[in-house]
């Protein structure tokens, strides 16, 4: 039996439309759910006040600071390492067993469940290196978690830069390093930034890793060696222990809003940068 190609076309199109619609529906559902439950809790005092009565009352200021601290440490450590490795892999080595081994390693690292990374961070940073439950331990563990993403996305971005650009630069007498910093990196920056922004999102939302390594102290961390709980951990504890569902949803709303804001800012900055370079 012959199938009418026009009919198949229509069927496939509506099927794909349904699948896309379903994805978007789930996304919208989650966001509205959190918004309905969480937004009424929000107020300036919720943002600026300390946690009181284990989270049943007061605000979430300490968790904001902790989240910021952890994410910044993770970024400051993982971005140079990740982008540096990607540059090394794409520009300074030939494709061979060494690069394949490194890439395989990074892929394995990406596949490690976060609870195990948390345990690893606990053993290495908290116990062995004696950093204790602290921002430093948490940030370093998060750095390990996001490193593979940053390497992978940076590598793809670097590889996408036309080889001809490098030929041109070399033919103009630029050294390899000049070529990389002046031409290759600016071209690859949008892709690299995408990876970094994704990683920020993951760090902000990560629970298991941070719970094991940064602890869950209610105080506002003031130094690298202070313990503290991130927003995600706070949400987890509030919800799990049934301390206060409204405050849990309030925290979740802030979490989602911050990730949205970061994405929007990064996107705008990127657009501006692209306009300057083209």
């Amino acid at each position: 039996m012959r199938v009418d190609p026009l009919l198949t076309e229509r069927l496939v199109k509506s099927l794909l439309w349904c699948l896309t619609g379903l994805t978007i529906f789930v996304l919208i559902f989650i966001i509205t759910f959190i918004a309905i439950k969480g937004l009424p809790q929000l107020s300036l005092s919720f943002l600026w006040h300390d946690i009181e009565d284990m989270g049943r009352a007061g605000g979430i200021f300490p968790t904001l600071v902790s989240t910021l601290y952890l994410t910044l440490i993770a970024l400051v450590v993982a971005s140079p390492l990740g982008v540096g490795s990607a540059i090394y892999l794409t520009e300074y080595t030939l494709e061979g067993w060494v690069t394949r081994l490194i890439r395989f390693g990074a892929e394995c690292l990406a596949g490690v469940p976060s609870i195990i990374l948390g345990l690893f961070g606990f053993v290495l940073f908290v116990i062995k290196l004696n950093f204790g439950w602290s921002m430093l331990s948490g940030g370093l563990s998060l750095a390990i978690m996001i490193l593979p993403t940053i390497i992978r996305t940076s590598e793809e971005a670097l590889k996408a830069v036309p080889k001809e650009y490098q030929d041109v630069c070399f033919s103009l007498g630029l050294s390899k390093w000049q070529t990389i910093t002046r031409v290759v990196l600016p071209c690859a920056l949008p892709g690299i930034m995408t990876g970094i922004v994704l990683s920020i999102g993951r760090s902000i939302g990560e629970t298991a890793v941070v719970l094991f390594t940064a602890g869950a102290s209610l105080r506002t961390p003031t130094s690298l060696f202070d313990s503290g709980r991130s927003m995600a951990v706070h949400f987890y504890i509030l919800a799990r222990e049934g301390l206060s569902m409204p405050n849990a949803y309030g925290t979740a709303a802030i979490l989602i809003i911050s990730i949205l804001l970061i994405n929007i800012t990064a996107y705008t900055l990127m657009q501006r940068f692209l306009r300057k370079y083209q």
């Binding site: 036309p162 001809e164 650009y165 630069c169 033919s171 103009l172 007498g173 370079y277």
Partner: peptide, 20 residues
């Protein structure tokens, strides 16, 4: 070689302007 390439310039078959 970097200074050699500044002394001997090259124009490729396919024009490649840099994205600037």
């Amino acid at each position: 070689v970097d200074s050699l390439r500044r002394r001997i310039g090259m124009v490729f078959a396919k024009p490649v302007p840099l994205p600037r």
